[in-house]
Amino acid sequence: MVSRLAAPQGYLSSKPESWYAKRVSERPSQASAFAARVLEQADALYNFARRLTHQASEAEDLVQDTFARAIQARDQFQEGTNLRAWLFRILRNAQLDALRRAQRSPLAKLADEEREAEDDSREFLRGDFEIDRLRRVVVADIENALASLSAEARSVILLDLEGFSELEIASIMSCAAGTVKSRLARARTTLRAKLAEYGK
């Protein structure tokens, strides 16, 4: 079967029959290398998914969905670009689709949540009083405070914490870099206000 395959004229000018055989021998190692690089991100993706969804099972589904989508869209990934940011973007889209499947417009939901976040940010606390409370919060407080944020606010804080640049976050969240900056500032202010409450 393999030996009958000829390469197209002009694509490989010499030894056309060897093209497919060469491809066969190259492809698995290239695919394996890609697979290995994707798998390296499993912990980071799961950590992000777990904090986005709160539930271990939902996080597992989300990561598994992300991997399935990454495999399908593999040819769209451009070598030399940031694989990690690409995978996080896929995960975020998978989460939006999951919200959509929950039969409510994700955009409407996110807009509502953003409004809530804005309202919360008005209760911004300042000074040593806030610092003192922030120092007293424990991990459970931080997790609860994060969980109480809107999905957008939580995402932008977590992506920033992952070390992604504004441009990368903008690409992951499909928005402008300037939007990331203001969204992040607002989300962190809301988080601080909530944490200050926990640290009472």
Binding site: A42, D43, L45, Y46, N47, R50, R51, A56, E60, V63, V138, V139, I142, E143, L161
Partner: peptide, 8 residues
Amino acid sequence: RLPRQAAP
């Protein structure tokens, strides 16, 4: 202080 959660 948040612990990172490894994939199972």
